[in-house]
């Protein structure tokens, strides 16, 4: 008897195949000029790939509710970090580089 019955070997190979297909798809879509859609498409595919890795390779699909809560919390904290940082940058006029500052002072900006 084992703690967790091992997963069927084919599920790992199927997951590998899906991840390879998605890698090729993301490359092909990146070569096309999708304009404003290119980033959402690239990140969307990356999120799907990440979900496949987390759920099946990292066995979160069958993990305890407490582990799922910790993962949820880590994503929540990351969202807090990014959201507050971006709202700050979006609502203030930062001089990001010294060259920007020089341009702003000389009135060329």
């Amino acid at each position: 008897m084992s703690l967790h019955p091992p997963a069927k070997a084919w599920t790992y190979w199927a997951n590998f195949l899906a991840l390879c297909v998605l890698t090729v798809v993301t490359w092909l879509t990146a070569r096309m000029d999708l304009g404003a859609l290119s980033t959402p498409v690239a990140l969307g595919i990356a999120v799907i790939k990440a979900a496949l890795v987390v759920l099946f390779f990292m066995h979160v699909w069958e993990s305890t509710p407490l582990t799922k809560l910790v993962i949820g919390m880590s994503l929540f904290m990351l969202t807090v970090l990014l959201t507050f940082l971006f709202t700050d940058y979006a609502t203030r006029n930062y001089d990001v580089l010294p060259s920007d500052h020089a341009a702003a002072v000389s009135g060329k900006h």
């Binding site: 490359w27 290119s38 990440a50």
Partner: peptide, 20 residues
Amino acid sequence: HFVDLVWIFLFPLLYLLGAH
């Protein structure tokens, strides 16, 4: 697998940004 996850995001953001 976590190291793999990081790369899954690095690949489109760094390598594919200018592919078009």
